[in-house]
Structures are given as structure tokens and as C-alpha cells.
Design a binder for these strands. Structure first.
Length: 245
DNA sequence: TCAGCGCCAAA
DNA sequence: TAGGATGCG
DNA sequence: TTTGGCGCTGACCGCATCCTA
């Protein structure tokens, strides 16, 4: 069986990265599957050149609200089926989950909620976490193998962010958020990045407002998880930190 | 994230 | 339709 | 009286929308 390359990228506005060097990167990197989060575009607002890209089919899960959230998956492989959301209205209207069935595995492209805005949003995030874990476990009971990727919006352990002590009371590194990742992993999922890289200092997100990227004061909040039956099929997992977007 | 502020306890 | 205010991250 | 540590506040950037002139 040949190797499949799957990439996950929180683009923070697909139209913005399209104006930069998105196409150049995509045509060079040529992943089999590309999972985008925070596209901030409805299906019909997607740049046509991406939506009609030769060799790829594009699947969307857009938010109801314009310019907000949204995920999309570009695939060179043909899935057997696709599904938007997990069947829960309050979560599905925010365009956060897109599922493709490739037969041998399900690929779940997810943009987990951000909890920094308010207590209500933190509550919503925790509810999403719980609902997703139930949803995933239900798929497992049906015998499905899962690849789960995207922006989880939580750093797992101290080594996953540059300022653990300072952020112990900040959403994104709260004890209850970290505990959920522990619970998720304990139910039979693998953080693939940690299969290959044990040391800290590897981040996937940096605060724009304080230009934290220049000083590499970051967080690892984007992940590829696989159900443990797939673990021995994972060849590598890495972060392309020099790609902006 | 970080500078700037008030507050307070230790030196 | 350019630009300021607002929402969100 | 000075010093240092803790906790809190607000400005900070970028994408996108909406409203007004």
C-alpha cells in the first residue's frame, strides 16, 4: 500500500491565503488530502481556482454566519461518501466538522471551538469536546478506524506551549481542557506527532497581536490523532512551521 | 503576550 | 466604494 | 523606606463583515 500524505492547516481566511502564496505551496507540496480550518467563507465564496482545482475535489462545511469559522477538505483520492457535522444542530451550524469515508478509514477534519472569548464560549467548547468524543466512540463501535485532524484549540502538556505557568488560567491550557485531551487519548487514540517527537518546543500557533512568532513563543494546538488500530500505519508526522497563514 | 499599574508583605 | 466600527480569534 | 512578587487591565495584529458618507 502506498503512502498517503494528509495535511491540516488553519488558514485564518482562505481568501486571504489565496492572495498570498497558497496555490504555490499547494502545487509544490501536493498532499493527497488537505484539511483546512477557519476558511471564513461560504461554499460559493471560495476562490474558484481552489474550488475547481485540477485533480482535487473540494468538500465544504461552512458556518451559517458569514466570514466565520468553516472547514473544507481538498482530496485527490475519491472518498466513498462525505458528511457535514455530527448531527447536532448547535455545533453543525458553525461549520466545524467534515467527515470523509475512504473505506479503510474515516477522515475527520475538525475546527474545535475557541474558548477565549467568554465563559459561554468556553462552555460551548467543552460541550463540543464531550459530544465529539461520544460521536467518535460510536464510530469506533461500528468498527471504523479514525483519523482526526485539525485545530483543537488546546495545548496538551507543559511541553506543548512556551508559557505553561503564565497560561494555567487561560482558555487553551485550562486543567479541564487538558483533562479532556487525556480522556480522549485514554479511550484509544494516538497523538501522532508525539510518536516521532518527544521533546518540547514544537508549536503550531503563535499570537499575532504580540508578534509571538518572531520569538517562537507558541502553542501546539493543531493535531493529527488516529485510533490506535492505525498507529502502526503512520509513517511520519511533522509541522511545517515556516508556512504562514 | 507584555508593559504598566496598584497592592502588600518581607527585608 | 473607501474607510471606520465591530466581531472574532 | 525600599524592594520584589502577585494579580489585574488594556493595547496589541489580521481577516472579514457591515454600515455610513
Amino acid at each position: 500500500m502506498e503512502t498517503i500524505k494528509i495535511v491540516s492547516w488553519n488558514v485564518n481566511g482562505v481568501r486571504a491565503v489565496y492572495k498570498k502564496n497558497f496555490m504555490q505551496w499547494l502545487l509544490t507540496d501536493q498532499p493527497h488530502v488537505l484539511c483546512l480550518q477557519e476558511t471564513k467563507a461560504q461554499d460559493d465564496q471560495f476562490p474558484a481556482e481552489i474550488a475547481q482545482l485540477d485533480g482535487y475535489t473540494v468538500y465544504f462545511a461552512s458556518a451559517q454566519r458569514k466570514g466565520y469559522s468553516g472547514v473544507a477538505t481538498l482530496s485527490r483520492l475519491k472518498p466513498k461518501s462525505s458528511q457535514v457535522g455530527m448531527g447536532i444542530e448547535k455545533f453543525d451550524t458553525e461549520g466545524r466538522l467534515l467527515q470523509l469515508d475512504y473505506g479503510g478509514f474515516l477522515l475527520l477534519n475538525i475546527y474545535f471551538p475557541n474558548g477565549k472569548q467568554s465563559n459561554e464560549r468556553l462552555q460551548y467548547k467543552m460541550e463540543f469536546y464531550d459530544a465529539f468524543l461520544k460521536y467518535a466512540q460510536n464510530l469506533r463501535r461500528q468498527g471504523k478506524s479514525l483519523i482526526v485532524c485539525g485545530d483543537v484549540n488546546t495545548a496538551h502538556r507543559e511541553i506543548d506551549l512556551a508559557r505553561p505557568r503564565e497560561n494555567a488560567k487561560t482558555s487553551g491550557f485550562l486543567p479541564e481542557e487538558r483533562a479532556w485531551i487525556n480522556r480522549f487519548l485514554s479511550q484509544g487514540y494516538i497523538d501522532t506527532f508525539r510518536m516521532f517527537t518527544k521533546e518540547g518546543g514544537h508549536y503550531s500557533w503563535w499570537d499575532q497581536r504580540t508578534r509571538a512568532r518572531e520569538r517562537d513563543i507558541g502553542w501546539r494546538i493543531d493535531y493529527f490523532f488516529v485510533s490506535e488500530d492505525l498507529a502502526d500505519k503512520v509513517k511520519s508526522a511533522f509541522i511545517q512551521k515556516d508556512i504562514m497563514g
